[in-house]
């Protein structure tokens, strides 16, 4: 329930942003991370960015997320 997925911000349009999640482009809301810039990595939860993280962390969390996601299927 509290899973969060890392993604990279490609484009910002006001309160929303286009992000790349493992090669898929998706529109998400970035109201909760107003400091996020294009090129930043953010953690996503239920369609909203909840924290800005660094690239290395994003990669590591992504690996863990893939594992967890598999477990929950």
């Amino acid at each position: 329930m509290c899973l969060a997925i890392p993604s990279k911000i490609l484009k910002i349009n006001g309160p929303t942003a286009e992000v790349d999640i493992a090669g898929n482009v998706k529109e998400v809301n970035i109201m909760l991370t107003p400091e996020a810039k294009v090129g930043d990595y953010v953690l996503l939860h239920a369609g909203y960015a909840i924290q800005v993280i660094d690239e290395k962390s994003a990669e590591e969390i992504f690996d863990a997320w893939e594992d967890a996601h598999e477990a929950l299927q």
Partner: peptide
Amino acid sequence: GVGFETTTPVVAAAIDQ
């Protein structure tokens, strides 16, 4: 609205919208 503090701000943001 179900969830702990991970989810609540997301719901609060939706109410704001």
